[in-house]
Write a protein that binds this DNA or RNA. Sequence first.
RNA 1: UGGGGUAUCGUCAAGUUGGUAAGACAACAGAUUUUGAUUCUGUCAUUCGCAGGUUCGAGUCCUGCUACCCCAUCCA
Length: 570
Amino acid sequence: MNKPNNSNNKAAPKTNEKAPAEGANFLKQIIEKDLESGKVKEVVTRFPPEPNGYLHLGHAKSICLNFGLAQEYGGRCHLRFDDTNPETEDTEYVESIMNDVKWLGYDWGKNLFYASDYFEEIYQWAEQLIKDGKAYVDSQNEEEVRLNRGDFTHPGKNSPFRERSVEENLDLFRRMRAGEFAEGQHILRAKIDMASPNMNMRDPLMYRIRKAHHHRTGDKWCIYPMYDYAHPLSDAKEMITHSICTLEFQDHRPFYDWCVENVDVPGEPHQYEFARMNMTYFVMSKRKLLQLVKEGLVNGWDDPRMPTISAARRRGYTPESIRRFAKRIGVSKAESLIEFDILEACVRDHLDEISHRAMAVLNPVKVVITNLPEGHKETILSSVHPKNADLGKRELSFTKEVYIDASDFMENPTEDFFRLGPGKEVRLRNAYVIKCNEVIKDASGQIKELRCEYFVETLGGKPLADGRKVKGIVHWVSAADCVDAEVRLYGRLFKTAHPEDVPAGQDFKSNLNPDSLKIIKNAKLEKSLAKATLENRYQFERVGYFCLDNKDSKPESLVFNMVVDLASSH
RNA sequence: UGGGGUAUCGUCAAGUUGGUAAGACAACAGAUUUUGAUUCUGUCAUUCGCAGGUUCGAGUCCUGCUACCCCAUCCA
């Protein structure tokens, strides 16, 4: 890399003409090729969740991918709810999903759709398929269907109903729609190939009878299309060009294409698959997350330790940090396990840029400054952000009694500890250097207060009178002029990087980290924090990034969440 | 077992008519610093799952092998 470029190669120029296309990936290449060849004029993608649960970071990757691609190539991205299974879906979820997508910073504009809006059309297309002899009503029961599907090594067997006449199929299908039959009595299947090596092509199901209430269509329908049949047609109807989904649908692509080819739909969408995201110290499966919620192992779907988007929001992650994360991890078809560190790095990256600085003492120890008069109070001005003067200044109260954090004092300091100890000097950040002259303990031997002297000449970062500088710097808060708050510290939800790797007989919950939540009831915050807002992020200097809790914080009783701690080389 | 995929640094990931291994996170070392933060600098794949072959030259082409993932829900 640092080798001089003695270009002896004939076709020299292509080295770094173009800035490396940021995050080049196989999807962009496909899109660029399609655009170039004129195969597509405008890129149209879609994010198609089923409204049956809360979105997590894996979905965030997909959202950023689909909306990001559309944005990048000047196209559009639809939000479509794949609500073809009435039994699992609910409007509660469509609302939370819309909320999450919006929060991530994406706008679907007018392009909000529901597969259920297409039910009539999808039904008509099915009738056409019947008329074309490409679909039939099968009256085997569930068990028979399964048995006759064969398995990996054995081809399936044709249904005895496979050769029904078009008229009979049509009649039956219409009566299915009319509600004449019980659930399970009939299904509609595509007539493809029961011997196909691809199980998905062994006459896949198109419709099943479900006498269930649908969250949008109510009781209008009692037959519902299967995902595999409805999805390609919905894509085609919306003129989607690139239908991006996860790897497990690769085997479904042949049927996807079959539908697009055999139904007279507008558009010619193509399906492309990428690897879903897994992350260390987390589980992503809906089922497992549900277990954690149901069993009370976390405090709901938006518990800040959860990998859901609502949890990320409550935790204080910014949409920007998640977008950066999605970009940084890239997209490919290789099975991947992303390190949680990358997410945290992205969060710190963004938060460092925008966070208001403040001091907060989580485990207070009282420091009495002996050479200050009783009742002394002076105001010190400090910047809200060290590199962004636009954020202005904040006022600190310096008084005779202050708090420092217990972890910044060591009675018998080790060699590499350069904060406070008996006889040691340390700088109170933004203020003066102090020296600890006396340690006062209570009867039980607990440190009650530290009696220190301060050095007037050291304000503003100046050295001591004899020219010495002190290395240690600690944060502090005025005991007389501060605000109390509850502070919640979060650790990783699981104590192991691969919570699902578990000895036989145990389950992933045995890997839960018992110390993932620590609540500090009486933290002492500098007074400027009394005006903290939900929108802003705060860096408690030398501790971490924090934000107000969007559920529990009240103006008169503040609750802060730790978003992420500060990276530490010690 | 049949089909479909994937294999490049600890973790992601670029690498596209074969031309001599980007970047990020992590780690380590150092500089700056009123945050043991940030910032900055340096180190970190003689090697691309393995074995052969083609070629002046292969991560990229050919052959064989291995490992892992997905598929047999009237779920999505």
